[in-house]
């Protein structure tokens, strides 16, 4: 099955999303900040990354930019997850290199559809 990496610092949200995705038969890994995410991806590249934007150590935008700057992960599908709901926040995420964007609270079916679409496109 596809491997999903959740990058999220809020414990509850991380736990909830992990379990919901596992129930949909994804293999889910999760980390708490951007640096951990980069380390994890370098070690064990997932099929798709769900990336929170407000992260400690290295925020989501920088993490995504870092991923895009490495040839190995330049095309890795990344969906931004963020509680910032203003219109320019979305643009900011896309500018940083994210493939798609979804606001919290997460519309789970929509998120699944987005994940599947991105995975199918690979």
């Amino acid at each position: 099955m596809s491997v999903v990496l959740i990058v999220e610092d809020n414990e509850l949200n991380r736990d909830m999303l992990t379990r919901r995705l596992e129930r949909k038969d994804f293999t889910v890994f999760s980390v708490g900040d951007g640096q951990q995410a980069l380390d994890f991806i370098a070690d064990q590249p997932p099929d798709i990354v769900l990336l929170d934007m407000d992260l400690p150590v290295l925020d989501g935008w920088s993490t995504c930019t870092a991923l895009r700057n490495q040839p190995a992960t330049a095309n890795l599908p990344v969906i931004a997850l963020t509680a910032h709901a203003m219109s320019d926040d979305k643009q900011k995420a896309l500018d940083a290199g994210c493939d798609d964007y979804t606001t919290k609270p997460i519309d789970f079916p929509l998120l699944l559809a987005k994940i599947e679409a991105l995975l199918a496109g690979c």
Partner: peptide
């Protein structure tokens, strides 16, 4: 405010839905 409200709401909605 919007950001701060959405974060706990995400958990509430997410867990309930699940």
């Amino acid at each position: 405010m919007s950001h701060e409200l959405r974060t706990p709401l995400n958990a509430i909605i997410g867990y309930s839905e699940m």
